[in-house]
C-alpha cells in the first residue's frame, strides 16, 4: 500500500510549484488567509483523483497485488497525513508571523485550526465516496448540490439561533469532541467508499 500512497505524493510533488506560489500569495496577503492552506491541500488531493480518472489508473491499479481495499485505504491514509501536516504547518507559520507582530493569540489560533480540521473532514467525508462512485467530474457536481443544500440548511439553523447556542456549549468540550467526530466521519466515509469501490467496474 505504501506504493499507492507514494504515487499520490509524487503527483502532488509534480504540482508543488503551484502549491507553493499560491501559499506565498496567501502569506503575504494576510496571516489570517493562511487558514486557507489546508483547504488548498485538500484541493490538491482531489486533483490526484482527476489524474487517476484521466489515465484510467484505477483499472490498472486493480491488476496489482495490492487489491481494491488498499487502493481506497491509501487515499484515506494519505488524506489524514496531509491534513495533519498542513494543519501543523499552518499553525506554526501563523504562530511565527503573529509572534513577530506581537499579536499572537493561542486560543484563537487553536480554535481556528480545529475549525479547519472539522470543515476539511466533513468535505472529504462527503466527497470521497461520491468520487469513488461517480468519478471526479460527476462527483464535483453532486458535491456542489450537497454543499449548497447544507449551507442552505446551515443558514436556516443560524438564523433560528439553534446552532449558535449549540456551538457555544460545545466549545468547552471541543478538544475531546473534535477527534471523535473527525475520526468517526472519516471511518464511516471510508466504509462507504470501500463498499462502492469493491463493486465498481472500470
Amino acid at each position: 500500500m505504501s506504493g499507492l500512497i507514494k504515487k499520490d505524493l509524487l503527483i502532488i510533488k509534480a504540482n508543488i510549484k503551484t502549491i507553493l506560489i499560491i501559499a506565498f500569495i496567501f502569506v503575504f496577503n494576510s496571516s489570517k488567509m493562511l487558514f486557507m492552506l489546508p483547504f488548498l491541500c485538500v484541493m490538491f488531493l482531489i486533483t490526484t483523483f482527476s489524474y487517476d480518472d484521466f489515465n484510467n489508473w484505477h483499472a490498472y491499479a486493480i491488476t496489482f497485488p495490492s487489491g481494491r481495499k488498499n487502493i481506497v485505504k491509501s487515499k484515506y491514509i494519505l488524506t489524514i497525513i496531509i491534513i495533519i501536516f498542513s494543519i501543523l504547518a499552518t499553525g506554526l507559520i501563523t504562530a511565527i508571523i503573529d509572534h513577530t507582530k506581537g499579536n499572537f493569540d493561542f486560543d484563537q489560533t487553536l480554535s481556528s485550526l480545529f475549525g479547519c480540521i472539522l470543515a476539511i473532514s466533513i468535505i472529504v467525508s462527503i466527497m470521497y465516496p461520491l468520487i469513488f462512485k461517480f468519478g471526479v467530474e460527476k462527483g464535483r457536481i453532486i458535491l456542489f448540490v450537497i454543499i449548497f443544500s447544507i449551507s442552505l440548511m446551515g443558514s436556516f439553523l443560524i438564523s433560528s439561533n439553534v446552532l449558535l447556542t449549540f456551538l457555544q456549549n460545545v466549545d468547552k468540550y471541543a478538544i475531546i469532541l473534535l477527534p471523535v467526530i473527525t475520526i468517526s466521519l472519516l471511518l464511516i466515509s471510508y466504509f462507504i467508499s470501500l463498499k462502492v469501490y469493491l463493486k465498481k467496474e472500470f
Partner: peptide, 8 residues
C-alpha cells in the same frame, strides 16, 4: 489506455 497518471 490504462496506466499511471501521465504527470509521472
Amino acid at each position: 489506455n490504462m496506466f499511471f497518471p501521465e504527470i509521472l
